[in-house]
Amino acid sequence: MTHKVLIVDDEPNIVISLEFLMDQAGYAVAVARSGEEALAQIRTFQPDVVLLDVMLPGINGFDILQRVRQNATWQQIAIIMLTAKGRDVEVAKGLALGANAYVTKPFSTRDLLAEVRRCLNTGQNHDARPG
């Protein structure tokens, strides 16, 4: 079965690059450009992995993360925070709220793919790991 990846980012060029990477790695891809759109996509597209930016129009990434983690049916969705917010406090917050990984922009495409693969392999494991 093809794994599904949802890209949540409002920066068009970054979305293009992520789409290309995920598509090339053989995942089914959907894109959301705002917080509301992201929640709607999570409901309908039912991704296995979400690449989640923090600074979004509307609901921000941390709020989305929290809502996902509060919803019992979404527990197995792996969430990778992918954001330019790289301060320790922000990383700690993301991991504390239940992100599976925290990757800071600019990211290495290889590392990001490895992180996605790891999340898909560990399945339901929600261990916090330094990004």
Partner: peptide, 13 residues
């Protein structure tokens, strides 16, 4: 970081 992210990602691609 935002423009840098695109630059790095596409360069690597």
């Amino acid at each position: 970081r935002t423009p840098l992210t695109s630059i790095r990602a596409f360069s690597e691609i």
